[in-house]
Design a protein around this nucleic acid. Structure first.
Length: 489
RNA sequence: GGGUCGUUAGCUCAGCCGGUUAGAGCACCUGACUUUUAAUCAGGGGGUCGCUGGUUCGAGUCCAGCACGACCCA
């Protein structure tokens, strides 16, 4: 087994100790990040010596040994640099010591920066220090980890051996940084709200349930950030946002992870039209920062995020794609109309039929960024009704590549209507719909003291990160995605 | 939940129609080598072929079940 490799490495640890060298020292000689060294000495010509001494610390990634001299590749979190170790410069004992290190170990190297005749910027080691020992070999240096299961289960190794994987998470970090700086610039305040909710609210989804022993109450991991953020907004924090994990006890797929990251923001004195403009500008800023362009390739499809995005009302989109003009048709009339067009549909409520037809005909067509507006009131219990069509709401969802990326409303701020909506949801729950929302009296109590007209939006950041990093699966943009437990032994 | 495919050394992969002791490259060990960069050259060690059962004179290979994963579908 691999144990022979591990045992050999453990033997090296003992050998280091026997020579009085700590294989895991706490102190590190002065060092600077490798990218800084590369930048500062980038102007050196081939075979030119800088005369400058530097200290660098990092992981040994490769070794090319030629007897009494070796080239090593040392990498830190910023970059990689070549080290030249030679017996005549280091002395025989130090050279033998550095030859005894393994790829994967951490070393500190001090020496002069020069450029080799082949043109590679290199540190000519004058002294070195052991920083930490690795007792298992790194993945294959050229192919890295190809088995996706290993990549997800052992992400540290994937990150070490794949520049593409690193780049995905760099882009994700730029996305987060840009969202925070843009929203802050616009006067939004970042807040944190509870993850443990007595009533899982803000959307329809199955929650994870847990129990607080000391308080002896059942609690749920949040499925959305919405309700508490609106309570903060009612309190006068009238431009707020939160970036946080939400949890849904549902299936796992290339587009779903049971815990995922949401951005939710609420802005008083605007509406869903304002949210459309904000979505365009925020997403644009993110693409500009992380990719440098509003036009990107995603899995072979060219996506153009330049504003304004296509906008279409839900029922219009259904009419365009299915040929079914639902108008004010009742559910049985819709089923009949579908039949005359040769479309078989299940026997559902009017709203469920709308959702069904949308999923079946419209969603597959939504490739370029598209804002779908005017959702039925029954499935939008927290959104304001359209004044001219009270069965519809001022709500939109952003779709890209058939994926729902964002969801936004003119927020319902009428506490009387909000109570009616909750009661409608409770009726659905009583009728067996486990995901229907529940009356939240604390939320209503706050709203009853007055809530300003508000636009709010939620953005699925993992999916946005997929688009930014050309990732086919949500697992590629989550460092440690949910996987089934694999029993050892 | 259903279908298809996959699982062989630490990693990347071969392994044909079921037939001797399961191979290669990287990594590792030994030796040579002072400008290499997937260094090179010579030699060596390393395997519960995912797990369990079945068919067979004989199973990495065929069959069934299970586990894990990927993709597609609901």
């Amino acid at each position: 087994m691999s144990d022979s490799l591990v045992e050999a490495r453990l033997g090296k640890i003992e050998a280091l100790k026997a020579r009085g060298i700590d294989p895991f020292p706490a102190r590190v000689p002065a060092s600077e990040r490798i990218d800084g060294v590369l930048r500062r000495h980038g102007g050196l010509a081939a075979e030119e010596h800088s005369g400058a001494r530097v200290g660098v610390a990092g992981r040994l990634m490769a070794r090319r040994q030629m007897g009494k001299a070796s080239f090593l590749d040392l990498r830190d979190g910023s970059a990689k640099i070549q080290i030249h170790a030679a017996a005549d410069r280091l002395g025989d004992e130090a050279y033998r010591g550095i030859c005894d290190t393994d790829v994967g170990d951490f070393l500190h190297i001090a020496g002069e920066v020069f450029r080799t005749k082949r043109g590679e910027l290199t540190v000519a080691a004058e002294s070195w220090t052991f920083l930490a020992k690795a007792i298992r070999p790194l993945p294959e240096k050229w192919h890295g980890l190809k088995d996706v299961e290993l990549r997800y289960r052992h992400r540290s190794l994937d990150l070490l051996s794949s520049d593409e994987t690193r780049e995905r998470f760099v882009r994700r970090a730029k996305m987060m940084e840009t969202l925070r700086s843009e929203l802050t610039r616009l006067g939004f305040l970042e807040v944190e709200t509870p993850s443990l909710h007595p009533i899982p609210g803000g959307t329809t989804a199955r929650p994870f349930a847990t129990h607080h022993n000391a308080l002896d109450v059942d609690l749920y991991l949040r499925i959305a950030l919405e309700i508490y953020l609106k309570r903060a907004l009612i309190g006068g924090l009238d431009r707020v946002f939160e970036i946080g994990k939400c949890f849904r006890n549902e299936g796992v797929s290339t587009k779903h992870n049971p815990e995922f990251t949401m951005l939710e923001l609420y802005q008083a004195y605007t509406d869903y039209e304002g949210m459309m403009r904000l979505a365009e500008s925020l997403v644009g800023a993110v693409f500009q920062a992380a990719v440098g362009s509003l036009v990107v390739d995603y899995q072979g499809t060219r996506l153009d995020f330049s504003p304004p995005w296509h906008r279409v009302a839900m029922l219009d989109a259904i009419a365009e794609t299915s040929g079914l003009d639902l108008g004010t048709l009742t559910a049985p009339e819709i089923v009949a109309a579908a039949k005359t067009k040769g479309i078989g549909v299940p026997n559902l409520s009017r709203t469920q039929l709308i959702e069904h037809l949308f999923d079946r005909f419209v969603e597959p067509t939504l490739i370029q960024p598209t804002i779908v507006t005017d959702y039925p009131v029954e499935i939008s219990p927290l959104a304001k009704r359209r004044a001219d069509a009270p069965h519809l709401t001022e709500r939109f969802e952003l779709f890209v590549m058939n994926m729902e990326i964002a969801n936004a409303f003119s927020e319902l701020n009428d506490p009387v209507d909000q109570r009616v909506r909750f009661e409608d949801q409770e009726r659905l729950r009583a009728g067996g719909d486990e995901e229907a929302q529940r009356i939240d009296e604390d939320f209503l109590f706050a709203m009853e003291h007055g809530m300003p007209p508000t636009g709010g939006m939620g953005v699925g950041l993992d999916r946005l990160a997929m688009l930014l990093s050309n990732s086919a699966s949500i697992r590629d943009v989550i460092l440690f995605p949910a996987l089934r437990r694999k029993d050892e032994a």
